[in-house]
Nucleic acid binder design. Structure first.
Length: 506
RNA sequence: GGCGGCGUAGCUCAGCUGGUUAGAGCAGCGGAAUCAUAAUCCGUGUGUCGCAGGUUCGAGUCCUGCCGCCGCUACCA
């Protein structure tokens, strides 16, 4: 079974913020988990570099076009690396190999008859790359950007989106889970239901883009160019293999709610028109709100994820985002919340659990941990994590999956208190009891490490190392009693050391 | 206007196809312990489950209406 995951390709018009990191991390968690289950995976992310905004913004920045997109693409590549995303490829739409496949894709639709020539006249917001009707404007300005739209009249090529209404409805009816969560499915379906207008897929007045193959005086509309990346990248990501037969259409697209229509309506229609299969699934997540407010430049509350990573490290940021907010819904984050979760849950509940466990093994048993039996309730809970976490991740309930693992962390701390190894250590006749408790703690912590590996990969490794366990993450190891005997456990250094509290000014 | 989401303890939220005295975490208060990054554990909640009706033996959970917040979308004589 192959499993292909994508993030949107991010627009190099601006630099990365926490919202980009959120989508990338979500996709990464899911794909890492699938690898743990031994599935064949491919994880794609990248940048969207065409469109009329780019020449304008580049000029404002005083840079050559190429220089500008290279610089901003590099910022997204750095973000990808810094959040520890395990992507298999990073696609850029300015890559000529992408351009060639975009042309091939459009040519197919053209030849099959669903692209025709027409004239578009209307109000156009260059920032949105979208046309507006008078009614959509607010005080005559673009509702998104608050700038006056331009009146544009030009010859364009149109895609017969309107012809795909029935096919799309049929698709939605046959595959209820094509768009998740279900309320996003409803949103997309009702949009299709009320009728679709044809869309312009070319721009006559622009030069920065992929030329229309049969009329090189025009370039491909940036959104169409961008969507095709999901299919094109598989064609050239590997020099020695076209990956499309292997991974298309087993794709899961992750995206934020603002680009639902492009992904859930236009993209499947384009694929149908090109005679290709539609995506297996699309997951539409919500927005992160900073202190209850939408994150935006105009609100002045943009967070650079790299700043947070500099202070707390990458794992805590990955952890926090899926701990506070239910994935799929909008969710509130705050610097203080991150700090509190870091301290309490990562530092105290998990980090300290490792510290106390390893310290006791070192102190009472000279670092030796021998196989013993894992008692009923605890063993059952470990096995339950192994069984139920995959089910939650299969439906992209990242928050629920993490909560299940955390309940096990809490149980282990409770187990320490209830069995009080320091009491057992005082009584030679209870040596076997002590051995068993220490083994249970070690085994439970080991299982936790494997179970949270997709969320906090670095910490997972450090836990396994501290316990003298092999760095093997196969999901079958999330089960009781898989601890490998060892003689070399030393008191572990703090897994998540204290950091200074954030300044109120932020 | 249509469609959809949300409204549950001070705060953040779970509560799937209706069923024992409505839950978790945080914060607060009280206590225990000392293996540990003073980290942990235990106890502690008189909540009109937005409001009003209805269906049912039984509703936070279904239906209707209404109120408030939000999203998508349409339209305006």
């Amino acid at each position: 079974m192959s499993f292909y995951v994508t993030t949107p390709i991010y627009y190099v018009n601006s630099t990365p913020h926490i919202g980009h990191a959120y989508t990338t991390i979500a996709a990464d968690i899911v794909v890492r988990h699938r690898r743990q289950r031994g599935e064949e995976t491919f994880f794609l992310t990248g940048t969207d570099e065409h469109g009329s905004n780019i020449p304008r913004v580049a000029e404002e920045a005083g840079l050559e076009l190429r220089e500008f997109v290279d610089r901003n693409a590099a910022a997204f590549q750095e973000m990808t690396v810094r959040v520890n995303a395990s992507n298999d490829f990073f696609v850029r739409t300015t890559d000529p190999r992408h351009g060639a496949l975009v042309q091939e894709f459009l040519q197919r639709i053209y030849e099959r008859g669903d692209i025709y020539e027409g004239v578009y006249a209307g109000l156009y917001c260059t920032r949105c790359e979208a046309f507006y009707t008078e009614a959509e404007l607010v005080d005559g300005l673009c509702p998104q950007h608050g700038i006056p739209p331009d009146f544009v009249e030009e010859k364009n090529y149109f895609f017969r989106l309107s012809a795909y209404q029935e096919a799309l409805l049929r698709l939605y009816d046959e595959r209820r889970e094509i768009v998740l969560p279900s309320f996003r499915y409803n949103e997309a379906r009702s949009f299709i239901e009320r009728g679709l207008d044809d869309i312009s897929v070319s721009r006559a007045s622009q030069r920065w883009g992929v030329p229309i193959p049969w009329d090189t005086s025009q370039v491909v509309y940036v959104w169409v160019d961008a969507l095709i990346n999901y299919w094109s990248a598989l064609g050239f990501a590997r020099a020695d293999e076209d990956l499309r037969p292997r991974f298309w259409p087993e794709v899961r697209h992750f995206l934020a709610k603002d680009i639902l229509k492009f992904h859930c309506v236009i993209w499947p229609a384009l694929l149908l028109a090109a005679g290709l299969e539609v995506p297996r699934q699309l997951f539409v997540h919500g927005y992160l709100l900073l202190d209850e407010r939408k994150i935006s430049k105009s609100a002045g509350n943009v967070i650079d994820p790299l700043d947070l990573i500099d202070v707390y490290g990458v794992d805590p940021v990955r952890f926090y985002l899926f701990r506070v907010a239910t994935f799929g819904q909008d969710g509130s984050i705050s610097l203080q919340g991150l700090h509190e979760r870091y301290e309490r849950e990562l530092g105290n509940e998990l980090g300290n659990l490792l510290s106390r466990t390893t310290a006791m093994v070192a102190r009472y048993r000279d670092g030796r941990l021998r196989a013993a039996e894992v008692s009923g309730a605890l063993g059952a809970q470990i096995d339950r994590v192994g069984g139920e976490v995959p089910a939650r991740l299969d439906e992209f309930d990242l928050t629920g999956a993490l909560e299940l693992v955390w309940e096990l962390v809490r149980s282990l701390n409770r187990h320490v208190e209830q069995s009080a190894p320091w009491e057992l250590a005082k009584d030679e006749s209870r040596a076997a009891e002590l051995d068993r408790v220490l083994y249970e703690l070690g085994d439970g912590l080991r299982a936790v490490a494997v179970a949270v590996a997709s969320f906090v990969p670095d910490a997972s490794e450090r836990i396994l190392s501290a316990l003298g366990q092999p760095l093997e993450l196969g999901w079958e190891r999330v089960a009781a009693g898989r601890f490998v005997e060892t003689d070399a456990i030393e008191p572990a250094p703090p897994l998540f050391p204290r950091v200074d509290a954030p300044t109120p000014a932020g």
